[in-house]
């Protein structure tokens, strides 16, 4: 499967490439920080606010106007969260939902997306519209029919309704990936294809590696969606041993109502893995297509 162009992502090279908005001096570098910093502060406040509240006793939270810096700092909220909700167990359960969802997004959806982007077939446009239209019906009204369906299949009370449909891909990811595949220079695949590589090999060998940035994006979306999913686990799960993080959080908003410190500590714990994942995944956004001389 000869790729007659070098299309392997080359992160090191990519990083060294001049990028748009390239600065010409130290002044420009400083200038960029001057622009980026105040903005980022505005976007980070919720996190600061959340962490700050997670370190307060209720009597401090009751003050107003609220004080940003907890005094004293109440670390005890964090270990106490585990008394109310075994977040470590819920974390493991959540992974059972997250991993299939990522698989469905990265593999199943991208397969369909590639077909929509590249292959011609009768009825393709109509199928594409049907695909889009699955996103247009509010979940509130499909919830009961869907539940009845899973009840008939005897899947209620377990992870199956929360896993199997997601393995089959989702319209959102198919559409997103399709749009990205549309921008990949066609010559790359044609060459491989004509060299005798099968469609599938062309797809896995050439297209997917080229699509790394968007696959990183899709991974994050899929991760976040199932990480935060609440309604599905609420109605389908039936045993606290199966609970996921979003259900664990419920303990603080409801039965122990008003324990804002604990709620925020639990939320912080729930958010931290997502932030870390994003922090490390974002570098994959920069390993874009670095082939030379193909277009332009």
């Amino acid at each position: 499967m000869a790729t007659n162009t070098r299309v392997q992502p080359a992160p090191a090279v990519a990083a060294a490439q001049p990028r748009p908005l390239r600065g010409r001096s130290g002044f420009m570098a400083v200038f960029r920080h001057v622009i980026l910093l105040p903005g980022v502060v505005f976007f980070v406040i919720p996190l600061v606010f959340m962490v700050s509240t997670s370190l307060k006793a209720l009597r401090q939270i009751a003050l107003f106007p609220p004080e940003l810096i907890p005094n004293p700092v109440l670390w005890a909220n964090y270990p106490e969260v585990f008394h109310y909700a075994p977040m470590h167990l819920y974390f493991v359960n959540t992974l059972f939902l997250v991993l299939p969802a990522i698989f469905g997004a990265v593999f199943t959806s991208s397969l369909a997306a590639y077909a929509f982007a590249r292959l011609r077939a009768p009825g393709k446009n109509a199928i594409f519209i049907i695909l889009l239209s699955t996103m247009m019906v509010p979940a509130f009204v499909t919830m009961i029919p869907t539940y009845i369906l899973f009840a008939k299949l005897r899947w209620v009370g377990g992870f199956k309704p929360l896993v199997i449909p997601y393995l089959m891909g989702s319209a959102f990811f198919v559409f997103l990936l399709r749009q990205f595949f549309l921008t990949i220079p066609r010559e790359l695949e044609d060459a491989a294809f004509i060299d005798g590589s099968s469609r599938l090999r062309t797809f896995t060998g050439i297209v997917l590696p080229l699509a790394k940035p968007v696959l990183a994006t899709v991974t994050i979306f899929a991760f976040m969606a199932s990480w935060n999913e609440y309604m599905g686990p609420l109605i389908y799960l039936s045993n606290k041993k199966q609970y996921v993080l979003s259900l664990g959080l419920q303990v603080f908003t409801d039965a122990y109502g008003g324990e804002w410190g604990l709620l925020m500590a639990a939320s912080t714990m729930m958010v931290a893995p997502v932030i870390l994942l994003f922090f490390f995944a974002q570098k994959h956004f920069v390993t874009g297509i670095t082939m030379s001389g193909l277009k332009g």
Binding site: V156, G157, G158, S238, N239, V251, A255, G258
Partner: peptide, 26 residues
Amino acid sequence: SRRNFLALSGTAAASLVAAACVAPEA
């Protein structure tokens, strides 16, 4: 009622669905 409201939204208990479904761990 704030208390009810807080208490409410949430949680409950029970292993769902009846015998019909596969009872998980138990």
